[in-house]
Amino acid sequence: MIQMHDINQPRIQDTPLSLDALLTGSERDDCGALAVFAGTVRNHHEGKPVAHLVYTAHAALADKMIRGIEQEIAAKHGVPVCRVVHRIGALAIGESAILAVVRAPHRAEAFAALRAVVDAVKHRVPIWKEEFYTDGSSAFVTGCCIAEDAAQPHEDDAGHDHRHHDHGHQHA
Protein backbone atom coordinates (compact mmCIF):
# COMPACT_ATOMS: atom_id res chain seq x y z
CA MET A 1 0.00 0.00 0.00
CA ILE A 2 3.02 2.29 -0.11
CA GLN A 3 3.32 4.66 -3.06
CA MET A 4 6.92 5.79 -2.89
CA HIS A 5 6.92 7.72 -6.12
CA ASP A 6 4.81 10.63 -5.00
CA ILE A 7 4.22 10.29 -1.32
CA ASN A 8 5.17 13.92 -0.81
CA GLN A 9 3.35 15.47 -3.73
CA PRO A 10 0.56 17.81 -2.63
CA ARG A 11 -2.99 16.57 -3.16
CA ILE A 12 -4.28 20.14 -3.51
CA GLN A 13 -2.80 22.15 -6.36
CA ASP A 14 -3.43 25.64 -7.73
CA THR A 15 -1.92 24.79 -11.12
CA PRO A 16 -3.36 22.66 -13.95
CA LEU A 17 -3.49 18.95 -13.14
CA SER A 18 -1.38 16.55 -15.17
CA LEU A 19 -2.46 12.97 -15.71
CA ASP A 20 1.03 12.10 -16.91
CA ALA A 21 2.52 13.41 -13.67
CA LEU A 22 0.08 11.31 -11.67
CA LEU A 23 0.73 8.16 -13.71
CA THR A 24 4.49 8.42 -14.09
CA GLY A 25 6.30 6.28 -11.57
CA SER A 26 3.13 4.57 -10.37
CA GLU A 27 3.48 1.60 -12.73
CA ARG A 28 3.34 -1.83 -11.08
CA ASP A 29 4.14 -5.11 -12.80
CA ASP A 30 1.61 -6.95 -10.63
CA CYS A 31 -1.28 -4.74 -11.76
CA GLY A 32 -3.29 -5.54 -14.89
CA ALA A 33 -5.80 -2.73 -14.48
CA LEU A 34 -5.42 1.02 -14.51
CA ALA A 35 -8.56 3.09 -13.97
CA VAL A 36 -8.59 6.87 -14.17
CA PHE A 37 -11.22 9.48 -13.49
CA ALA A 38 -11.07 13.16 -14.37
CA GLY A 39 -13.77 15.54 -13.22
CA THR A 40 -13.84 18.39 -15.70
CA VAL A 41 -15.66 21.71 -15.70
CA ARG A 42 -18.99 21.38 -17.51
CA ASN A 43 -20.60 24.23 -19.41
CA HIS A 44 -23.93 23.68 -17.66
CA HIS A 45 -25.35 22.80 -14.25
CA GLU A 46 -29.00 21.94 -13.73
CA GLY A 47 -29.91 23.80 -16.87
CA LYS A 48 -27.91 26.97 -16.20
CA PRO A 49 -25.04 27.85 -18.55
CA VAL A 50 -21.75 27.94 -16.61
CA ALA A 51 -18.94 30.35 -17.56
CA HIS A 52 -16.27 29.17 -15.11
CA LEU A 53 -15.77 27.74 -11.61
CA VAL A 54 -13.79 28.73 -8.58
CA TYR A 55 -12.69 26.04 -6.14
CA THR A 56 -11.45 26.88 -2.66
CA ALA A 57 -10.20 24.52 0.02
CA HIS A 58 -8.88 24.30 3.53
CA ALA A 59 -5.67 23.14 1.91
CA ALA A 60 -3.83 21.65 4.90
CA LEU A 61 -6.84 19.68 6.11
CA ALA A 62 -7.92 18.71 2.58
CA ASP A 63 -4.44 17.39 1.76
CA LYS A 64 -4.36 15.32 4.93
CA MET A 65 -7.90 14.00 4.40
CA ILE A 66 -7.26 13.01 0.79
CA ARG A 67 -4.19 11.04 1.88
CA GLY A 68 -6.28 9.33 4.53
CA ILE A 69 -9.02 8.49 2.04
CA GLU A 70 -6.46 7.07 -0.41
CA GLN A 71 -5.12 4.75 2.30
CA GLU A 72 -8.61 3.79 3.46
CA ILE A 73 -9.87 2.93 -0.04
CA ALA A 74 -6.64 1.15 -0.98
CA ALA A 75 -6.93 -1.08 2.08
CA LYS A 76 -10.68 -1.67 1.72
CA HIS A 77 -10.49 -2.66 -1.96
CA GLY A 78 -7.03 -4.25 -1.89
CA VAL A 79 -5.54 -1.97 -4.54
CA PRO A 80 -1.81 -1.17 -4.44
CA VAL A 81 -2.11 2.33 -5.96
CA CYS A 82 -4.86 4.84 -5.21
CA ARG A 83 -4.15 8.53 -5.80
CA VAL A 84 -6.19 11.72 -6.02
CA VAL A 85 -5.27 15.33 -6.71
CA HIS A 86 -7.68 18.25 -6.61
CA ARG A 87 -7.19 21.66 -8.11
CA ILE A 88 -8.21 24.96 -6.55
CA GLY A 89 -8.59 28.47 -7.98
CA ALA A 90 -10.41 29.60 -11.12
CA LEU A 91 -11.05 26.88 -13.72
CA ALA A 92 -12.27 27.32 -17.28
CA ILE A 93 -14.73 25.00 -19.03
CA GLY A 94 -13.03 21.70 -19.87
CA GLU A 95 -10.27 21.98 -17.26
CA SER A 96 -9.84 19.16 -14.74
CA ALA A 97 -10.81 19.83 -11.13
CA ILE A 98 -10.00 16.34 -9.86
CA LEU A 99 -7.90 13.43 -11.08
CA ALA A 100 -8.04 9.98 -9.52
CA VAL A 101 -5.88 6.99 -10.43
CA VAL A 102 -6.18 3.40 -9.28
CA ARG A 103 -3.95 0.47 -10.21
CA ALA A 104 -5.04 -3.04 -9.26
CA PRO A 105 -4.33 -6.61 -10.24
CA HIS A 106 -7.79 -6.92 -11.86
CA ARG A 107 -10.34 -4.50 -13.20
CA ALA A 108 -13.23 -5.25 -10.83
CA GLU A 109 -11.43 -3.85 -7.78
CA ALA A 110 -9.94 -1.03 -9.85
CA PHE A 111 -13.41 0.16 -10.90
CA ALA A 112 -14.82 -0.22 -7.38
CA ALA A 113 -11.94 1.63 -5.74
CA LEU A 114 -11.99 4.40 -8.34
CA ARG A 115 -15.66 5.10 -7.80
CA ALA A 116 -15.31 4.93 -4.03
CA VAL A 117 -12.32 7.24 -3.81
CA VAL A 118 -13.91 9.88 -6.04
CA ASP A 119 -17.15 9.74 -4.05
CA ALA A 120 -15.28 9.98 -0.75
CA VAL A 121 -13.21 12.98 -1.81
CA LYS A 122 -16.27 14.78 -3.16
CA HIS A 123 -18.30 14.14 -0.02
CA ARG A 124 -15.79 14.43 2.80
CA VAL A 125 -12.94 16.79 1.91
CA PRO A 126 -13.15 20.53 2.73
CA ILE A 127 -13.35 21.87 -0.82
CA TRP A 128 -15.99 24.26 -2.10
CA LYS A 129 -17.17 24.87 -5.64
CA GLU A 130 -18.61 28.21 -6.70
CA GLU A 131 -20.23 28.33 -10.12
CA PHE A 132 -20.19 31.53 -12.15
CA TYR A 133 -22.94 31.63 -14.75
CA THR A 134 -23.01 33.32 -18.12
CA ASP A 135 -25.63 35.76 -16.79
CA GLY A 136 -23.10 37.11 -14.26
CA SER A 137 -24.64 35.46 -11.20
CA SER A 138 -22.89 32.84 -9.08
CA ALA A 139 -23.70 30.19 -6.49
CA PHE A 140 -21.96 27.72 -4.25
CA VAL A 141 -22.82 24.17 -5.24
CA THR A 142 -24.93 22.23 -2.77
CA GLY A 143 -22.62 20.35 -0.43
CA CYS A 144 -22.28 17.55 2.10
CA CYS A 145 -22.09 18.32 5.81
CA ILE A 146 -18.82 16.97 7.26
CA ALA A 147 -19.46 17.81 10.93
CA GLU A 148 -19.63 14.62 12.97
CA ASP A 149 -21.89 16.22 15.50
CA ALA A 150 -24.10 18.48 13.42
CA ALA A 151 -27.86 17.90 13.44
CA GLN A 152 -27.49 14.40 11.96
CA PRO A 153 -24.38 12.29 11.55
CA HIS A 154 -22.96 11.92 8.06
CA GLU A 155 -24.28 8.53 7.02
CA ASP A 156 -22.61 7.03 4.00
CA ASP A 157 -19.93 8.65 1.96
CA ALA A 158 -20.15 6.31 -0.99
CA GLY A 159 -23.91 5.91 -1.11
CA HIS A 160 -26.82 8.05 -2.09
CA ASP A 161 -28.10 8.91 1.34
CA HIS A 162 -25.43 11.40 2.30
CA ARG A 163 -26.85 14.72 3.39
CA HIS A 164 -27.01 17.60 1.00
CA HIS A 165 -27.58 21.14 2.10
CA ASP A 166 -28.54 23.82 -0.30
CA HIS A 167 -26.30 26.84 -0.09
CA GLY A 168 -27.10 28.25 -3.45
CA HIS A 169 -26.97 31.86 -2.37
CA GLN A 170 -27.63 33.61 -5.63
CA HIS A 171 -25.77 36.82 -6.30
CA ALA A 172 -26.50 38.95 -9.31
Binding site: A97, I98, P126, W128, V141, G143, I146, H164
Partner: peptide, 23 residues
Protein backbone atom coordinates in the same frame (compact mmCIF):
# COMPACT_ATOMS: atom_id res chain seq x y z
CA UNK B 1 -11.81 18.49 12.79
CA UNK B 2 -13.03 19.02 16.35
CA UNK B 3 -16.40 18.40 17.95
CA UNK B 4 -18.71 21.02 19.45
CA UNK B 5 -17.51 20.05 22.92
CA UNK B 6 -13.83 20.74 22.20
CA UNK B 7 -12.31 23.31 24.61
CA UNK B 8 -10.87 26.55 23.26
CA UNK B 9 -8.12 28.68 24.72
CA UNK B 10 -6.96 32.24 24.12
CA UNK B 11 -5.37 32.69 20.71
CA UNK B 12 -6.91 29.60 19.11
CA UNK B 13 -7.77 29.91 15.44
CA UNK B 14 -10.69 27.81 14.30
CA UNK B 15 -11.95 27.22 10.77
CA UNK B 16 -15.60 27.14 9.72
CA UNK B 17 -16.15 24.38 7.15
CA UNK B 18 -19.60 24.54 5.51
CA UNK B 19 -20.97 21.55 3.58
CA UNK B 20 -18.34 20.54 1.02
CA UNK B 21 -18.56 19.98 -2.73
CA UNK B 22 -15.30 18.99 -4.33
CA UNK B 23 -14.84 17.37 -7.72
Amino acid sequence: IVRRTYPLKAGDEIALLPPVAGG
